[in-house]
Design a protein around this nucleic acid. Structure first.
Length: 877
DNA sequence: TCGCGCACGC
DNA sequence: GACGTACGTGCGCGAA
């Protein structure tokens, strides 16, 4: 039988080591994790390399120990444990429990003593013993059976102290370690030793005399007058120091070595903790062991329906429509799962689609459905002609609301964070990239039913969390209804004039060719203008222009750099123009042509409702939130966006200065509130206050600068960011910001409070209780911290504005329906809603759109909406 | 396939 | 003083 091997870990020592060796990491909720992380790394290494049969982590038990009776000041003058470390100990204990590793502490004794006692007992029973610590004191325990690993730099790099190693390193035998320490003392434990005696002297003396006791007896033989005096004066102190440094090997430890048996860890629990602490790299490591957490799936029973019947439905249903295509518009459905009190079912797509019972169930508002990714299910079914109603809970939304930094879009990952493992990731089942494939029906059915069943298991927990966060209303009254509105917008799509786009494309192509020729001519050679690398070589090497800025990979050729060089060479203007037109052609003309739907001749974007950290939406495939508007040439693209019926119009309405109005409200700043109540030009008003001038003294330059400052406030940019946008120094930018804050003391106070609030709670909130966690707000890294601070100031502003327009979208959809109108909302562009409307509804829209949008919430300042309409999106200006 | 530089919107 | 700086999406390039 293989020999028993006991590993004893000095818990406090290793935790300290890890804490100071690693930067102050934290998870998304702001819990610091560096000590736990380092400790875990060490633990994983030990388990792998040492393969112990027995294991224990010993901790110090508290403030006083028996050593304090000998010497009151023992460990005196020690720095208090940093709170960032102490908060980690409870997780460490949890982690050890998950690993099934015994931990132990004993009042009045230190971890050293526990380790010493057990090490000797085990050695006596012929165990091989390994001790892990960062404290060299432990080396006194080394024998031929006990090896002491002391961490060097970091935590995983160690020196193994054996008697031979000690002999070689110090020229002393193991027993003399305590004598050495007695002479040297130890400042960290406040052990005095003999003043003036360090490692070198101590070793020299011990080589000659053997022990402190014999040294003190034969003190006359010591060479060197000073040294002799010091030894004389500190005789008792030296003996006491030796005593303090001696590890007690007969502590009243109540566990036996046999009880320390290590039989492997509880993978589920460990994974759970890793997830909670965001130890993603360690999670991967666990996976590499070949035992993925999904291996131990328990069988789940379900019925594959060949016919859907009324008896399969219940009032509360968990429902999943599997659409594997990332783009769910007109995509295949791989199957449908249904879990409720009557049972677990898989409904093959073809069965569902032709079943009247199923269609009736899907469209029934009273049959409540909990789903994962409601919009995907609604839109995919809509393309198949099936209406899906009654959805009142979407996991993707719930997960995003409780923590928007939670990026996983896979139910399995969300489930694992909740400690539920009876489910595989989609990637594990379907593969990814080129390997993506749909397995046989039984497997798909099993996977789908598992996912659906998982929702049933986790729903309560999410509701609980939403309630705790005071976010249930945000979830139920805002985000869930919004999902339905967005689904309708996406499915409806927006009509584009394909011929117009193609025409513009041809036109752009010709222009680009001409510019290209000019550029090659001016540069004296042909090259790829679209390659920043090649362009850099031409501009900064061949033409000898001065490089303004560098990037990681070479010269920067960005627009702001080129603009600085425009005077110096004709080619620059041409390049800027080439870039501008090239962007239009590739991204907007070709990009949009590619996504025009074959059947509907429309463009169907997808709004991501669970992505941004601020609560805004995003739009993909295509992105219809960044269609050019600033420059005329680009703005023309909007001519291709047209109503879907003849004699209809595009009607666009946007909030005026919504973020600054929100700021006025949240900050409760009198001056800002007043300005909006008067409906003043806010940039002019800002300029008046910042530059202390009257309205007619505000120059266009002052207004421009004030506008940039307002822009900075809204988007939370730094003084550096402002300096870049204004082309001034960072110092001057800071002066601007400071003057702004002096002019608006309410805003200043809000900014300060917001940062304090974030530090205190770890997150900031919006008007409608949306949250954003900011763990880095306590970082010692200036950049990370500054960024978090600006985010703390900015997110409530941007996020509340997002809340408001979302609310307006829901109200708008309801109002249009109530009024029996044909007009539809097509797009949302952050502060703007785009409609299509029959001409005879224009007058009514002019009344109700501003009304609904302005009344979406009530603030201390009025909300203002501007609108316009025309035969294309371009004309709605 | 991926990271990068660049550019479009709010 | 720190050293890279609102939020997004999508394109072409060039290295792997």
């Amino acid at each position: 039988m293989a020999k028993n091997k006991l590993v004893l870990i000095d818990g406090n020592s290793i935790a300290y080591r890890a804490f100071f060796a690693l930067p102050l990491l934290s998870n998304e909720k702001g819990i610091h994790t560096n000590a736990i992380y380092g400790f875990t790394m060490m633990l994983m290494r030990i388990l792998e390399e040492e393969k112990p049969t027995h294991m224990l982590v010993a901790f110090d038990a508290g403030k006083t120990t028996f050593r304090h009776k000998t010497f009151g000041e023992y460990k005196g003058g020690r720095q208090k444990t940093p709170p960032e470390l102490s908060e980690q100990f409870s997780f460490l204990r949890e982690l050890l429990d998950a690993y099934n590793i015994k931990r132990y502490e004993l009042p009045e004794y230190e971890a050293d003593d526990i380790i010493g006692t057990l090490a000797q007992q085990a050695a006596k029973d012929d165990y091989e013993v390994k001790i892990i610590s960062g404290d060299k004191d432990l080396t006194q325990l080394a024998t031929d059976k006990i090896t002491v690993d002391i961490t060097k730099k970091g935590i995983t790099d160690v020196d193994s102290y054996t008697p031979a190693f000690i002999e070689e390193k110090y020229g002393l035998n193991v027993d003399q370690i305590i004598d050495m320490k007695g002479l040297m003392g130890d400042s960290s434990d406040n052990i005095p030793g003999v003043p003036g005696v360090g490692e070198k002297t101590a070793i020299k003396l011990l080589k000659e005399f053997g022990t402190i006791e014999t040294l003190l007896e034969s003190i006359d033989k010591v060479s060197g007058k000073k040294l002799k005096e010091k030894l004389e004066d500190n005789k008792e102190q030296a003996i006491m120091s030796k005593q303090l440094a001696t590890i007690m090997t007969e502590a009243p430890v109540e566990v036996t070595v046999e009880e320390l048996l290590y039989e492997g860890f509880d993978k589920k629990k460990v994974v759970d903790i890793f997830k909670e602490l965001s130890f993603n790299s360690l999670l991967d490591k666990l996976g590499e062991d070949g035992e993925t957490v999904t291996e131990d799936l328990e069988d789940i029973s379900f019925e594959i329906l060949e016919e859907v019947k009324e008896e399969h439905f219940a009032k509360e249903n968990f429902f999943m429509v599997e659409v594997l295509d990332e783009n769910y518009h007109r995509a295949d459905i791989q199957g449908i799962a249904l879990v409720n009190e009557t049972g677990n079912y898989f409904i093959p797509t073809e069965v569902a689609l032709q079943s009247e019972e199923f269609t009736a169930f899907a469209s029934d508002h009273k049959r409540k459905k909990t789903v994962f990714d409601a919009k995907r299910a609604i839109v995919a079914l809509k393309w198949k002609g099936i209406e899906l109603n009654g959805i009142d809970f979407d996991f993707i939304i719930a997960s995003y609301i409780v923590n928007p930094s939670e990026t996983s879009t896979d139910l399995a990952e969300i489930a694992r964070k909740k400690g539920y493992y009876q489910i595989e990731t989609d990637e594990a089942v379907y593969g990814k990239g080129a390997k993506r494939a749909v397995p046989h029906q039984q497997k798909v059915a099993d996977h789908l039913v598992r996912k659906t069943f998982a929702m049933q298991e986790m729903k309560e927990s999410f509701i609980h969390e939403l309630k705790d966060n005071e976010q249930l209303e945000l979830f139920e009254e805002l985000e869930m209804p919004l999902t339905l509105v967005l689904g309708e917008m996406e499915a409806l799509g927006i009509k584009v004039d394909k011929a117009r786009l193609e025409e513009m494309g041809t036109d752009l192509g010709e222009k680009l060719e001409k510019i290209e020729e000019k550029i090659f001519d001016l540069a004296g050679e042909k090259f790829n203008i679209n390659s920043p690398k090649q362009l850099g070589v031409i501009l900064f090497e061949k033409l000898g222009l001065p490089p303004v800025k560098k990037t990681k990979t070479g010269y920067s050729t960005s627009a702001d750099v080129l603009e600085k060089l425009a005077e110096k060479h004709e080619v620059i203007q041409q390049i800027l123009h080439y870039r501008q037109l090239g962007k239009l052609k590739s991204t907007y003309i070709e990009g949009l042509l590619k996504v025009i739907h074959e059947d509907s001749h429309k463009i169907h974007t997808r709004f991501n409702q669970a992505l941004t950290q601020t609560g805004r939406l995003s739009s993909i495939d295509p992105n219809l939130q960044n269609i050019p508007v600033r420059l005329e040439e680009g703005r023309k693209i909007r001519e291709a966006f047209v109503p879907s019926h003849e004699d209809w119009v595009i009607f666009a309405a946007d909030y005026s200065q919504i973020e600054l109005r929100v700021l006025a409200h949240i900050a409760n700043d009198e001056k800002l509130i007043e300005a909006f109540k008067e409906d003043a030009d806010i940039h002019t008003k800002t300029a008046m206050d910042v530059f202390h001038v009257s309205e007619d003294e505000v120059t266009s330059n002052m207004r421009r600068q004030a506008k940039a400052v307002n822009f900075g406030i809204v988007y939370g940019i730094s003084d550096y960011g402002l300096s870049q946008s204004l082309g001034i120094t960072r110092k001057d930018a800071k002066i601007f910001i400071d003057r702004y804050l002096e002019s608006f003391p309410g805003v200043k106070e809000y900014m300060e409070d917001s940062v304090l609030d974030a530090k205190d709670k770890g997150y900031v909130t919006t008007l409608l209780h949306r949250r954003r966690y900011l763990p880095e707000i306590t970082s010692s890294n200036f950049n990370l911290r500054s960024f978090a601070e600006r985010t703390a100031m900015n997110t409530p502003i941007q996020g509340s504005a997002a809340d408001i327009i979302k609310k307006a979208m829901i109200d708008m959809a309801n109002r249009l329906e109530e009024e029996n109108m044909k007009s539809k909302v097509l797009l949302q562009v952050h502060d703007e809603l785009v409609f299509e409307a029959p001409k005879d509804e224009i007058e009514k829209l002019k009344k109700i759109v501003p009304e609904v949008m302005e009344q979406a919430v009530e603030l201390k300042v009025p909300l203002k909406v501007d609108y316009s309409y025309g035969s294309t999106w371009y004309d709605a200006k």
